[in-house]
Design a protein around this nucleic acid. Structure first.
Lengths: 254, 254
DNA sequence: ACGATCTATCTTGTATACAAGATTGCGAGG
DNA sequence: CCTCGCAATCTTGTATACAAGATAGATCGT
């Protein structure tokens, strides 16, 4: 994905660092995607609410085309549901679907924690420590939005520490979807959440793959339980089926 | 997602079965998506080849718009790579990325096999047996395309047996991406592949979650090894890092 | 002959237009 | 009073148009 730079020249000192410059000049569609996603995740649009292309286009002062493409992109991420000739709505998930997402997420987070523990990238770990401290500080008396942001950041960093982009992308998608479901009561048990983050990070630092995987998996499953119980206030909140994923085959990494 | 039907009426016998009828009348975009995906997966377009909207539109005898949206959809699936103002190309993956995909896929297939073994859905198992027999028959002397189709079918059925849609979707995506990478030598070791399928299915039927997960994981990793070795003919094909995922925490299912 | 610049062409990104499908509300008939 | 049918309106799906960015080739200078 990045061989274009090393083409004909032999100088080398001319190469610009940083990301491919062209990607900074974002198309309208991408701006719309970001705004829409933020609006959806922040709860500005409720689950099930219709997303009419014309209205949004007018709101953003662009034509329908970028909006249309943005909606399709968000549908691919799972945040928007499309119905053939009926248009788009903000995605809503049944309790069963939510459980499915959480189970998969738990498995993937476990795998990632295992990889992170295996690599023990020092730089990443340092950054993670910073994030952890900030998070635990905010856990006591922070505003919900900031907590959500820090939580996302921690998980993104942990994903980076796992050094598997494919895995990281999948985890982010699933995290956003579950966050969408749990948005209403998002500040649920922040203190415990960050205590679990700390434990996971310690296991990663210690290189204990098994423990890191176990803790990461539990972290997701327990948070899911908390939210599902809160959601179905008087209802039945059965245990999540854990198809998780400990005591790995110890095939060594590259 | 389906409460519109149970609205005012009390009859009940009027309800039509089967999928929402409207979904059968597919928009042009979806037709284009299917054709394009098939063309890409069949190797008709090679990795890295440019996908110019105008040409495709002319080829399909539609306007650029449906084509454009189809390309974006396939990009979301990971089969097409987009570069901001440069257009779309058929996705190509580095060896590292390929390994990442395979590792994740192995983990997910293991999880799914575990779930399938836990449920032991009799209907699904019957259908899987049929597919297995057909596959083993074709393994000896079938054409490559048919083998690919049967392989996809088996994995789809196994996914259905796991009863986790989210998981199934992710697995299908990853399978298609890896198939894209391995398309050139797709008929690699068909006999062994179907032998492994048989073993997995037996473990599922026996309700042996651990074994099913182990076999499914190995199935993916070994197939990956075979293909990677074949690809880097004289090169270094290191072992895939298995972040997999056996000996699960036995949290019971719903 | 080599290299740089400029131009012609190709492609994407965005906007606008139009047709067909879906929704809603109203009015006629029972 | 309720139901059915029709029509007006709203939305999506598709096509076309145009502007700006990217690419490649030709021209000119040395």
């Amino acid at each position: 994905m990045s061989e274009a730079i090393a083409s004909g020249r032999e100088k080398g000192a001319l190469e610009a660092e940083g990301p491919p410059l062209g990607e900074l000049h974002a198309p309208l569609r991408d701006l719309v995607v970001d705004r829409l996603r933020a609006d959806i995740l922040s709860g500005r649009y409720k689950s099930g609410e219709r997303l009419v292309e014309d209205r949004l286009a007018e709101g953003f002062k662009v034509s329908r085309n970028p909006v249309r493409e943005a909606i399709r992109a968000l549908a691919a991420e799972g945040l928007v549901a499309l119905t053939p000739r009926r248009g788009a709505t903000v995605a809503g998930f049944s309790e069963a679907e939510t459980r499915e997402m959480i189970e998969v997420r738990a498995t993937l987070e476990a795998m990632n924690a295992r990889l992170a523990a295996r690599r023990r990238d020092p730089g990443m770990i340092a950054t993670l420590m910073e994030c952890l401290n900030e998070g635990q500080r905010s856990a006591g008396a922070g505003d919900p939005a900031e907590l959500v942001r820090l939580n996302a950041h921690f998980h993104d960093l942990l994903a980076a520490a796992g050094h598997n982009r494919v895995l990281g992308d999948l985890m982010r998608q699933l995290r956003e979807r579950t966050n969408l479901v749990f948005a209403p009561r998002s500040a649920n048990g922040a203190a415990q959440t960050w205590e679990e983050h700390r434990a996971i990070l310690e296991a990663v630092i210690g290189g204990d793959e098994e423990l890191a995987a176990l803790l990461a998996s539990r972290h997701v499953l327990q948070a899911g339980e908390r939210h599902l119980e809160a959601a179905a206030a008087g209802g039945e909140a059965g245990a999540l089926a854990s198809a998780v994923t400990l005591e790995a085959a110890k095939t060594p990494s590259a």
